[in-house]
Nucleic acid binder design. Sequence first.
DNA 1: ACCTTTTACTTCACCGATGAAATATAAGCT
DNA 2: AGCTTATATTTCATCGGTGAAGTAAAAGGT
Lengths: 183, 183
Amino acid sequence: MASLSKCIGMMDEGIERTIRLIPQLPAVEAKLSRLMLMVSGSLNEELEFELKPYKLNHSEFLTLMFLYSRPDSSSTPGELCEFTKQGATNMTRIGNTLVKRGLVTRGGSDDDRRRVVIRITATGKRLVLKIVPPLFPRLDAMFQGFSDTDKKNLSRLLRKLAHNLDQATGDSDTHIGTMKATK
Amino acid sequence: MASLSKCIGMMDEGIERTIRLIPQLPAVEAKLSRLMLMVSGSLNEELEFELKPYKLNHSEFLTLMFLYSRPDSSSTPGELCEFTKQGATNMTRIGNTLVKRGLVTRGGSDDDRRRVVIRITATGKRLVLKIVPPLFPRLDAMFQGFSDTDKKNLSRLLRKLAHNLDQATGDSDTHIGTMKATK
DNA sequence: ACCTTTTACTTCACCGATGAAATATAAGCT
DNA sequence: AGCTTATATTTCATCGGTGAAGTAAAAGGT
């Protein structure tokens, strides 16, 4: 199994070779976006692996974490979709799964009968408290060797990139539908 | 539809609130990894959108690009899996789809009959040359406002993160199976 | 030379996600 | 008050991905 660094090396070579065939290719930007996708793919992989013993996937975990962090421990499918970049269809499915396990409850909304209120249960909160602390050492290890300045820079650059991604999406919101993110 | 920046704001707030409940949470690192996942989710989304008119998904496109960049325009499913972090099962399916469209051919290997050689066709190359140039303006726009130093720093930090991710994976390769990445 | 182990890829059944359509409800307009 | 449009969520059929098992071939050991 190739390491991520090896894959990145292959990507670098591939883009160098592609420039000879397509000279206008913005190589630096192409490499950066590929890097982003590759690194976050591995991050996602790690997280899915850590969650496996609890029989949760990334989307389910993210949903639980979002509910856990809310002042009243609840949200709606619509809001959850906005935050997690999931489609409504999938949020229904995720909700069903979490309800079935007793990790959340699904109820009506007093002020809008179209809305569903999803609330994390005591069981769900206990699961969160069980899952999260063991993730800390890996999280620390991921950023081993990063100075505070490095972390600040990474944060600034990623937020700037996010801003630019919003810009384009805003410009041409003809393709805004249910935009999805890899979790 | 919430903007990425709004989602990031919600994530920031969520992590700030979660710290009150779990004080040991490494907030900076948690935010950084969340940011990585969120930004690359949007990147992926953009790319999938750009590819849709050509009836290709990200994995298919990546496979074509890899083959296009090779000196002899070919590879094997095994090597493609290593580079794209796909499973062998899925690479068979991707290969089938691309063969069916006449974008690649599938043949035997002279030196190892277990191996399959996948080669991009002239049709496939034409498709690549049709798809790629229109991606450049968006690629440039994504990094609008990034200085050369910014780009170098982002590259350095992402590669360092990749190195750290390899470290942990190497340490405990008990979970190395077919590790997959979000494309 | 033969047997065992490993490797490369494919098939099968299933999982997590999607877009389109349907249903119920609220908002807006006249 | 009634009709139209928009919103929130669910259902349905399908897509892209997975792990386990199977098949064929190569490598390694004796």
